[in-house]
Computed example of a mutant assay.
Amino acid sequence: MVEIILKKGKEKAVHQKHPWVFSGAIDKVKGDPANGDVIRLLAADKTFLAYGYYNAQSRVAVRLLEWDEQRIINRDWYAEKLHKAISSRGHVLRDSETDTCRLVFSEADYLPGLIVDRYADFLSLQILSSGIENVKDDIIDILRSALNPKGIFDKSDATARDHENLEAKQGLLWGELPPEFIAVKENGINYHINIVNGQKSGFYCDQRDNRQILAEYTKDKKVLDCFCYSGGFSLNSLRHGASHVTSVDSSALALETLQHNIQLNGFDIQQNTSVQADVNKQLRKFKDEGHLFDVVVLDPPKYAPSRSALDRAARAYKDLNRLGMALLPPGGLLATFSCSGAVDIETFKQIIAWAALDAGREVQIVKQFTQPEDHPVRISFPEGEYLKGLLLRVL
């Protein structure tokens, strides 16, 4: 097995079980590993540290898997990790009102570069590292045996594959091709979701808890749901008695799916207004027209894919939240989110403070949102805590 030796003093993070080794920490590569090969990582004094995937093209040159030198990284090792990940979601899998969740969450489950989402009888995979790509067939066989799905679909079209010198992929991996719409349940609400043509892996199940929490504040309220996608916050608000929900997204397909899901659940279609538009432009239009809402939801896409984009992202988040605050009367509620891992919660709070200052408003933090239990965070890998949000009362 190829050995990679770290520079002196660069082993501290590895001892602390952080799963990433950056290329700048490497002193020597003894051998000629291909991208995705499992290597032995050694300290400068040649003592064993861990096993991991190597990729010469990536800034994260080694993604660590196992710190026990006696363990062998083989099919049995992958089966153990996958079964542990699935069993740890037992609480969610036993919920009769929810049949969609994340089964494997990459580094959090010691499988860096693998994301597996369950949508009723189908599985959606994202393979984002060359190491997982190399063992894809084993992963599929183990998942088939453990879960007996109708089909397994590949959604490995994320830009993260570029960093590993992998081409984007999408298509059926095993079993039946998913239908145009898969029927799933979340929080007792029915959804028809599109895995094949939908965003990411097909549906954003990371907001499951937050949708339900926020919905409890929406009874008899006028709600504005921005970046609504297929309508998670909109549908939960309607279920909990919102008087009217305005849903804004730039995607015609997303809004078409939302309208379908409203009717699927028997909600009053007259209580929803769907607007296809750029959200920032539409917020300015609402302000110019004098519209006010009781609850505003801002759940934008990832503005900061890396720390190098943090300054630009901070300005975008500030501007978006300033516009959202302008549409609320005193006492109105703003639910605002960031899914950028590079933006930690304290930075996000500071951005909100700047937005409030620019808007001439005071705000109170009512609740703090995070990701649900099927998106766990390893204490040694805080970067896994990517979703954060605040429920604010705007005064």
Score class of each variant (00 low, 15 high):
L6Y: 01
K12Y: 10
V21Q: 02
G24Q: 11
K30Q: 15
D32K: 15
A34M: 12
G36W: 11
L42Y: 08
F48C: 12
F48Q: 10
L49K: 05
A56W: 14
A61T: 09
L64N: 00
L64M: 12
E66H: 02
R71V: 15
I73Q: 03
A79F: 01
E80R: 11
H83P: 00
V92Y: 11
E97C: 13
A108T: 03
G113N: 04
V116Y: 10
L123P: 00
S130Y: 02
S130C: 13
S130E: 02
N134M: 15
K136Y: 03
I139F: 01
L143W: 11
L143D: 08
R144F: 02
R144S: 14
S145H: 13
S145K: 15
A146S: 15
L147K: 03
K155A: 03
T159V: 13
A160W: 15
R161G: 03
Q170W: 04
I189S: 04
I189H: 06
H192P: 06
G198P: 01
S201G: 04
G202W: 03
G202M: 06
A215D: 07
T218R: 03
T218C: 15
L224C: 05
L224A: 08
F227D: 01
Y229Q: 13
G241H: 09
V248N: 04
L264A: 10
D268H: 10
V279W: 02
K285A: 11
K285L: 13
L292A: 10
V295Q: 07
V296W: 00
K302G: 05
A304R: 01
P305G: 04
S308D: 15
A316L: 12
K318G: 01
N321Q: 06
M325T: 07
L328M: 02
P329C: 08
P329A: 13
L334K: 12
S338L: 09
V343Y: 00
F348Q: 06
K349L: 12
K349G: 06
W354R: 09
A355D: 07
A359D: 04
K367V: 05
F369N: 07
P382H: 05
E383I: 08
E385H: 14
L395K: 12
L395H: 13
